[in-house]
Nucleic acid binder design. Sequence first.
DNA 1: AACAGAAACTTGCGTTTGCAAGTATCCAGG
DNA 2: CCTGGATACTTGCAAACGCAAGTTTCTGTT
Lengths: 156, 156
Amino acid sequence: MFDLDQFLPYLINRAGVRLAVSFARDIADTGVALQEWRVLAVLAAAGEQRLSDLAGLTSIDLSTLSRLVTRMARQGLVARLNGNRDRRERRIALTEKGRGRTRAIIPTARRYERLALAGLSAAEEQTLKRLLRRVFANLEGLDRSPARFALRRDER
Amino acid sequence: MFDLDQFLPYLINRAGVRLAVSFARDIADTGVALQEWRVLAVLAAAGEQRLSDLAGLTSIDLSTLSRLVTRMARQGLVARLNGNRDRRERRIALTEKGRGRTRAIIPTARRYERLALAGLSAAEEQTLKRLLRRVFANLEGLDRSPARFALRRDER
DNA sequence: AACAGAAACTTGCGTTTGCAAGTATCCAGG
DNA sequence: CCTGGATACTTGCAAACGCAAGTTTCTGTT
């Protein structure tokens, strides 16, 4: 009826959850929660961001992120700067403390990546990453215009 | 410092979240939430399950799943059967209503999979799935509670 | 047979989540 | 230069989450 081992969303979810849960527990003693790490990693990689761009880059819902950033700012991990030209936007930036915490976690992050990729050749690793980027790109804009992709009942 | 486009956990997470969020919104009008769908899909694919096995198969935390199943049972989507040989366990099974709801959603699920895989050759599709299964397998046992690793009497 | 410990769930509790609605700011047409 | 929408966030609220602790039932040892 439905072979889960051949169903891509299932395979992505279970790999993602297993990786995330293990990693989150591993870094729990640093006081950084998983979603906080995602924010730190994006800011470290891409520099300071407007809240809405940060939401896109982290795959975290905007309203959730807004509160998450509030908590992180309270912990001193990030700073909310005012946008220069537009007073509606808040630019989120790493603080020194946030940068330090990020540096401390990166080796663990890399370790989990290596663990996940164990037994794959360099070529396979690149293929996997390329295909995941493609899958992501394929789904772009899906929420903006769901009707365009909707199949009617009789088109199935 | 940290190239996100080359970082596997990031790539898996963003592909998974984008797929999940879009799919969840698409099926929202069926009254089935994403995590409920995951339970339905696993039960449809693998037959009735003990709660703890279902937790493993769905990647949902056991305590969360316990309450989720309670809600689904109240909705009539699944039934909690008593385990035959062990009175501690509850076997979770699809009801007719649950099976119907699952059948109704499967075409949408398949549509999202096709969308995600657009532009990949059949070989690439198989490669992606194989590598994701491998990544999952690589991480096996990582998130088990430390107690599980405690030495048994004869190993001390 | 009795009891310690494990296994399979369930539940208490504080936290996090996400939708929807709200606020503040900007912009474009008249 | 005013006004009706966008844009960028924030917040109210109810639901969902996950850890830790609790309950019940089994199992192995002595």
